[in-house]
Design a protein around this nucleic acid. Structure first.
Lengths: 392, 392
DNA sequence: TTCGTTTGTCCAGAGACTTGACAAAGCGAA
DNA sequence: TTCGCTTTGTCAAGTCTCTGGACAAACGAA
């Protein structure tokens, strides 16, 4: 037998069957609670016996709990079950460009306690130190079992090994952040790109029924997309899927921090918009000022912002044309621009792609904008540790 | 329990475990033969006992066969196994724009017998009749058990139901081609978009080790892509993934048959190139003439063709930027343009996307061009019926 | 109160993988 | 040639998990 053997998936065993069905029960309860054991049996196709057994071990694990009895439909009244919200706690981190945020999150996605630490120009090891501070601060005072730590950060991130391969503003390269924290805290750690995390947050906590395919575009200081296909986060061969911010839009104007010119990020990101608006109207120096000027219809500003929306729409048009995905969400500070801006994005996207595909696609704002990365990182951790949403 | 219950995947059962492991063995042998039972045990992680049992049923089914003994490595010499090439035969069809092709294919992807029927303007029911003729002609004279019929056709195709939702030049809309043929011939039938099929052909028969992600762009009369992500064909919510031919390239010149303007297809397809070249050099009236003129460096023609390559490169740049996929293959008649053309595509694609992503991506010609759709349709059928390559 | 229905659980049974053991088959050294 | 060691393929018993049938508990309605 030669050395470079074919790579095969894991074999199927009894234990895998068990785990899979346990996750099936867990996922049903996560998607919509409460359910009785009999409900779950009908829903999953398993027998009442099997469900009873599975539920037993899940209750022993503290992951689900009984919450009283439901209304009878002519027979014995069912015992209702739900995910035990505080069966586990998670720590979710958002390593943003201006500040690091962290929160303790429960299994329902409730944020129990959150902290923000300004970055103030720190990078490299100093930034790692800040991460440690954040986790230390969140870990005190919580006697609930900790499922692990989920981290979202800008840049190219290898989630399978927990390595930050490249993050411009933090000045990290090939940083094994995951293993480092795992060793320090002794709990599982997952690290993912912030836009990818955002997509998972919307999918896991805010979309019912869960779409198979979903694209979430996060427009903040940068522009990035999280792409969920067949119910799973798609990261690409090099973990760089969704890097829409650095695709060339043709017009080579402003230089981009990636070293090239004409990237979408130099046109449509908040950073670029604030700069462009500031050049016209010097009083505008930050996002707040820009948004206010846009909403107040200040001459010139409106056009700048809507032009950017148009370019973003072109990028979305490509996404729709290439992937034919029906759900596209926009999250981040751009949500403040409101429906005029969104309308421009929609028009532009629809104009640049085959009608049959575009007409079915919904382009909307996401549900959360501030904590979306924290929640998404938590969602990824839940998915990896508990199997919510992951279809084997 | 409310009516709109959450959609859950199938529960795991013993039988599924069995099927899964059987497919694991089958897939190992399909990827690289021959292997002994002991090899397979090491490769899959199953015990020798289990593998022996699985192999037994597969041999009884006629899907694999023993092919003598291998060299001993100090102990008893192993009995070598491989897929029985003619354990099943398949019929693969390519419903092209100018002609319908069909072939009998075996499990190794060998084409045993093929036919071509010119379309001669037929569409609608007449085209369906032609499909039936093709199958009838291929079915005679083959006593090997028929696994089924695989069909690749241009247009938007719902593979899950076997429906051609929309095919311009065949004038088909919502045609339930799959069920129709299933009823007539009593064997499983799969229908897929031709570019999607092409991608499956390259993945299934010509790429070792099998890449996780692969994009195959078929440039012929139209332009379409087949997108394989996480080892599976990705079709999108409306089965229209990969419709790169109808994304707007900005410059709104020629009207497209889809009703819009500036589509990639009006610039980079063979149909468009022949038309553009014909306008400059009236002696050019078909693909052959165009290719000859390009290779002979006829004034003006070269520029037209390379301009098209550049535009195609932009589209590939978007694909790479959005999906970060490392393997991109080009198939179809454009392969005749050779390395100059390919070089131009590569340059353009690399220029329009983040260096970190582009540098890892290989853009090459595919292995087959003529029979790629026939083989791909067969591959899809094999995948669905035998589970080769599909990871549950 | 009684009957029918629904729920949750217990017990036996079946399917598939694993473990341990063993015979068959081959290489190599004494 | 013979013996010992290794590898291969198979057999029997054991374990894990799902399934099917049966039963008691719980509830509404007559």
């Amino acid at each position: 037998m030669s050395a470079n053997a074919t790579v095969l998936p894991e074999r199927a065993t009894h234990q895998q069957t068990r785990t899979f069905n346990q996750q099936l029960v867990l996922r049903a309860l996560h998607d919509r609670s409460p359910f009785s054991r009999a409900d779950l049996a009908r829903l999953t196709g398993l027998t009442r016996t099997s469900v009873g057994d599975l539920v037993g071990t899940l209750i022993d694990d503290g992951l689900i709990e009984e919450v009283g009895r439901g209304r009878s439909s002519g027979g014995r009244s069912p015992i209702l079950l739900r995910i035990a919200p505080d069966g586990r706690h998670l720590i979710g981190l958002d390593l943003g460009e201006a500040r690091f945020s962290g929160a303790v999150v429960n299994l329902r996605g409730d944020i129990l306690h959150s902290i923000h630490l300004p970055l103030e120009g720190r990078d490299g090891d100093a930034a790692v130190e800040l991460v440690v501070q954040l986790v230390d601060a969140l870990r005190t005072d919580d006697r609930c079992p900790l499922l692990g730590i989920g981290i979202g950060a800008p840049g190219i991130i290898d989630t399978s090994t927990g390595t930050v391969r490249w993050s411009v503003n933090l000045n990290w390269a090939e940083l094994r952040l995951g293993p480092l924290l795992e060793q320090r805290y002794g709990v599982p750690v997952v690290v993912a790109n912030d836009s990818h995390a955002a997509a998972l947050a919307e999918l896991t906590f805010f979309r019912r029924p869960r779409p198979n395919n979903l694209i979430v575009i996060k427009v903040g200081r940068g522009v990035g997309a999280g792409i969920i296909l067949n119910g799973q986060l798609f990261q690409g061969d090099g973990h760089g899927a969704g890097e829409v911010g650095h695709v060339s839009m043709g017009s080579a104007d402003a230089p981009c921090r990636c070293g090239r010119e004409g990237c979408l990020e130099t046109i449509a990101s908040m950073r670029a918009l604030v700069a462009a608006a500031g050049a016209v109207e010097p009083t505008i120096t930050d996002e707040g000022g820009l948004v206010a000027a846009f909403l107040a219809d200040v001459t010139g500003i409106r056009r700048i912002v809507l032009d950017a929306a148009r370019q973003l729409g072109v990028a979305i048009g490509w996404l729709i044309g290439l992937l034919n995905v029906r759900h596209v969400l926009l999250v981040g500070p751009v949500a403040q621009f409101g429906d005029d801006w969104l309308g421009e994005v929609r028009r532009s996207a629809r104009a640049s792609v085959l009608g049959l595909l575009a007409s079915d696609t919904q382009i909307e704002f996401g549900h959360v904008h501030d904590d979306v990365v924290v929640l998404g990182a938590s969602a990824l951790l839940m998915e990896q540790q508990l199997g919510l949403g992951l279809v084997r």
